[in-house]
Protein backbone atom coordinates (compact mmCIF):
# COMPACT_ATOMS: atom_id res chain seq x y z
CA UNK A 1 0.00 0.00 0.00
CA UNK A 2 1.19 3.53 -0.73
CA UNK A 3 2.38 5.69 2.17
CA UNK A 4 -0.52 7.48 3.83
CA UNK A 5 0.56 10.97 4.83
CA UNK A 6 -1.41 12.68 7.59
CA UNK A 7 -2.45 16.30 7.04
CA UNK A 8 -3.42 17.42 10.52
CA UNK A 9 -5.51 20.54 10.00
CA UNK A 10 -7.52 20.26 13.22
CA UNK A 11 -8.33 23.54 14.99
CA UNK A 12 -6.94 25.75 12.26
CA UNK A 13 -8.83 28.37 10.31
CA UNK A 14 -6.42 29.82 7.77
CA UNK A 15 -5.40 28.61 5.27
CA UNK A 16 -7.74 25.79 6.29
CA UNK A 17 -7.99 22.05 5.64
CA UNK A 18 -8.68 22.15 1.89
CA UNK A 19 -5.84 24.57 1.19
CA UNK A 20 -3.53 22.40 3.31
CA UNK A 21 -4.61 19.37 1.33
CA UNK A 22 -3.97 21.13 -2.00
CA UNK A 23 -0.47 22.12 -0.83
CA UNK A 24 0.29 18.57 0.30
CA UNK A 25 -1.12 17.07 -2.91
CA UNK A 26 1.50 19.01 -4.85
CA UNK A 27 4.27 17.29 -2.91
CA UNK A 28 2.67 13.84 -3.18
CA UNK A 29 3.35 11.25 -5.86
CA UNK A 30 0.67 9.71 -8.04
CA UNK A 31 -0.80 6.81 -6.07
CA UNK A 32 -0.10 8.35 -2.64
CA UNK A 33 -2.91 8.46 -0.11
CA UNK A 34 -3.37 11.38 2.26
CA UNK A 35 -5.44 11.43 5.44
CA UNK A 36 -6.86 14.86 6.23
CA UNK A 37 -7.93 15.51 9.82
CA UNK A 38 -10.28 18.47 10.19
CA UNK A 39 -12.54 19.97 12.83
CA UNK A 40 -14.28 22.06 10.17
CA UNK A 41 -17.64 20.52 9.31
CA UNK A 42 -17.39 22.08 5.86
CA UNK A 43 -14.47 19.79 5.00
CA UNK A 44 -16.87 16.87 4.60
CA UNK A 45 -18.24 18.66 1.55
CA UNK A 46 -15.55 20.93 0.18
CA UNK A 47 -12.73 18.38 0.14
CA UNK A 48 -14.71 15.79 -1.87
CA UNK A 49 -15.99 18.59 -4.13
CA UNK A 50 -12.44 19.63 -5.05
CA UNK A 51 -11.12 16.08 -5.26
CA UNK A 52 -13.90 15.12 -7.67
CA UNK A 53 -13.52 18.26 -9.75
CA UNK A 54 -9.79 17.72 -10.27
CA UNK A 55 -10.20 13.99 -10.79
CA UNK A 56 -8.49 12.51 -7.74
CA UNK A 57 -10.26 9.95 -5.56
CA UNK A 58 -11.94 10.02 -2.15
CA UNK A 59 -11.21 6.69 -0.46
CA UNK A 60 -13.20 7.17 2.74
CA UNK A 61 -14.73 9.84 4.93
CA UNK A 62 -15.85 9.57 8.53
CA UNK A 63 -16.50 11.66 11.62
CA UNK A 64 -15.71 10.90 15.24
CA UNK A 65 -16.15 13.32 18.14
CA UNK A 66 -16.11 16.34 15.88
CA UNK A 67 -13.04 15.30 13.89
CA UNK A 68 -13.53 14.49 10.22
CA UNK A 69 -11.11 11.98 8.73
CA UNK A 70 -10.99 12.06 4.95
CA UNK A 71 -8.69 9.79 2.98
CA UNK A 72 -7.91 10.80 -0.60
CA UNK A 73 -5.72 9.35 -3.31
CA UNK A 74 -3.69 11.30 -5.85
CA UNK A 75 -4.52 9.76 -9.20
CA UNK A 76 -2.74 11.96 -11.70
Amino acid sequence: MADRKIVDAKNTFCPGPLMELIANMKQAEVGDELLVLSTDEGSANDIPEWINKVGHEVIESSEDAGVWSIVVKKTK
Binding site: C14, L18, I22
Partner: peptide, 10 residues
Protein backbone atom coordinates in the same frame (compact mmCIF):
# COMPACT_ATOMS: atom_id res chain seq x y z
CA UNK B 1 -9.08 31.38 -5.83
CA UNK B 2 -8.01 27.80 -5.07
CA UNK B 3 -10.87 26.73 -2.78
CA UNK B 4 -14.64 26.95 -3.10
CA UNK B 5 -15.07 30.50 -1.78
CA UNK B 6 -13.28 33.81 -2.28
CA UNK B 7 -11.08 33.48 0.80
CA UNK B 8 -9.90 30.70 3.10
CA UNK B 9 -11.51 32.40 6.09
CA UNK B 10 -15.26 32.03 5.67
Amino acid sequence: YPIGRTHSLE
